[in-house]
Structure formats: C-alpha cells, structure tokens
C-alpha cells in the first residue's frame, strides 16, 4: 500500500475525527438535556466495534456494496435505454430511488442484535443492566449504523453527485416549491420506517425463540419476504399486474418503499405516512405484547 494512500486516508480520518467529535459533543449536549448519556455510550461502543479491524477490512465490505449498487444503477439505465415504461418514474427518479435505498439500506431493513443474542445465549446480559432491554437493543443498532453512514453512505452520495446523480438536486427538482414540507415529510417517513423496522425485528426475535434451532431458517424466510415486499431492491412501480399497488399497502412497503417514493416525489406523502402510522401502531403493540410474553423463554433459553 503506497504511503501516499495512508497520508490521504489520515487526512480524511482527521477531518472525519473533527466532524465526528463535533457531532458527539452535540449529541452529548442533547443527552444531558434528555438524560440519554447511558444510551449514547452504548451507541458509541457499538459503533466503535466496527473500527477495530483496520481500514482495509471495513472498506472491503463497503466496496462490495458499492459494486452492487453501481451494477444495479447500470441495469436500470440499460432498461430505460431500451425504451421500457418505468411505471411513471423517470430514469433519474429510478436511479435516485435505488441510490437512496442503498445508502439508507441499514435503516430501511432494521436488524437489531436481538435475534443474534438469542442464538448466542447472550440476551441475559442485557437484563443485568439498569436499562430497558428494547431500548438497549435499539441503541446498539443505531450505534452500529454510524460506521456505515460515515464510510459508505456519505462517500457514495459524494461519488454519485460527482457522477451526475445528485439526489439532492433530483429531490429539489421534483419537490418544486414544496421542498421544505416535502423534506420534512421525507424525514418523518424515514423515522416511521425505522420505527416500524424495529417493531418488526422485535416481533421476529420474539417468534424465533419458539423455533430455537431453526432460527436461521426463520431468518432466511424473513430475508426472502423483505427483499421482495419492501420495494428496496425493485421499486413497486416496476412490477407487473398492478402488484405494486398491493405491496404498497403491506407493512413491508412502509419500511422502505414509502420514504423512497416520498423522496423521489411520486408517492402521495399523506397517504403513505398515514399508512406508516397505522402499521407502527399495530406492530409496536404486537411487538410489546409478544416480547413480554416471550421474555421468560428468552431469559431461560438465552441464559
């Protein structure tokens, strides 16, 4: 590895450090206000785990993800070039949709450490801390997103913009004069998608405990369902027979497709957000009930 590479990376790292340090200070200020320091330190530990292996190793995973994204973008471009009807989406919108799905990939398909903790028998340790179990799991998950956001999402956005694919500009163009409102709606929708993702993951974890050694199989089923029904990989508008309209109403659609459609400006924000709120209410109620019911089993099996 040439020394120049390390110099560049060191400089980048230093800039990143400053930004990250500033970010952390702000977060600590907020934490003092909301008494959230205990969650922030959990998030920090969770985030720092990924940094322990060296740059080459952490970047290799992101490089592979970038390759995947690039190829998918090229495929959509090729599809548009052959004159295909993209179901009301322009090529720019389709590309932006795919780009956003990739850079918010972890937020649009929430995977908490809950299920893994059951497999490993490590859930018991979360019960020995003076914090709510679900909140700890959420803090760990959010912490684990930080390296990806910093080292994959931000660089991908910059590279995409330099290659002529700027989601911000596309967003502005589509949002028109209603930008602030639409921007706010996108953020609300993204938060609701993440919240729904957490609820779904907790329900999944609560159910997986009943199938014990078949938990991997259960995970496979979940992965299969999410990849098709969330709309993150293939936008619903590209599906035949009006399937997309049905999928949009399903809860999985609310975890990924809804905020992406709002961002690219083709979805009806009010309708999509209402749907997200309804699914959140239903799934959170179910998650809390199921998790409570499974707790005894979780602790005895996980311990």
């Amino acid at each position: 590895m040439p020394a120049a590479f390390f110099d560049v990376m060191s400089a980048a790292a230093s800039l990143g450090c400053v930004a990250a340090a500033a970010k952390i200070r702000i977060l600590y200020f907020v934490s003092e206000v909301f008494k959230m320091r205990k969650y922030l330190i959990t998030m920090r530990l969770s985030a720092s785990r990924a940094f322990d292996g060296g740059l080459l190793y952490i970047l290799s995973g992101y490089l592979l993800k970038s390759a995947c994204l690039f190829i998918l973008l090229m495929l959509w471009r090729a599809l548009a070039q052959q004159g295909a009807d993209l179901g009301g989406l322009s090529l720019d919108q389709l590309l932006t949709y795919t780009l956003l799905a990739a850079i918010f990939g972890e937020q649009l398909n929430v995977l908490t450490p809950a299920t893994t903790a059951f497999w490993e028998g490590a859930i018991i340790s979360r019960y020995m801390r003076p914090l709510p179990v679900l909140a700890q799991l959420m803090a760990e998950t959010v912490g684990s997103w930080l390296p990806g956001l910093l080292l994959y999402s931000v660089p991908t956005l910059i590279i995409a913009a330099s290659a002529g694919l700027n989601p911000g500009i596309a967003f502005l163009a589509n949002a028109g004069t209603g930008f602030p409102a639409r921007g706010l709606l996108f953020l609300i929708s993204l938060l609701l998608a993440m919240a729904l993702g957490f609820a779904m993951d907790f329900i999944f974890a609560s159910l997986v405990i009943y199938v014990k050694n078949a938990s991997y199989q259960a995970y496979q089923i979940r992965r299969a369902i999410v990849s098709l029904f969330s709309g993150a990989l293939i936008p619903f508008t590209l599906l035949p027979w009006g399937m997309g309209r049905v999928f949009e109403l399903l809860p999985f659609g609310s975890t990924a497709s809804a905020p992406l459609l709002i961002f690219v400006g083709t979805g009806n924000p009010a309708r999509l957000i209402c749907l997200q709120i309804i699914w959140n209410l239903i799934f959170w109620a179910a998650a809390l009930i199921l998790f409570r019911r499974s707790e005894e089993r979780l602790v005895s099996y996980g311990g």
Partner: peptide, 15 residues
C-alpha cells in the same frame, strides 16, 4: 485501543 472516539479513525489507518 484507547476506546476514545477520536482515536477510532486513526486506528483504522494505522492501528
């Protein structure tokens, strides 16, 4: 590892 956030990125480049 120092465990401090400011050292994380430095460790990435030069552990």
């Amino acid at each position: 590892r120092s465990g401090k956030f400011k050292d994380l990125l430095r460790n990435l480049v030069k552990p």
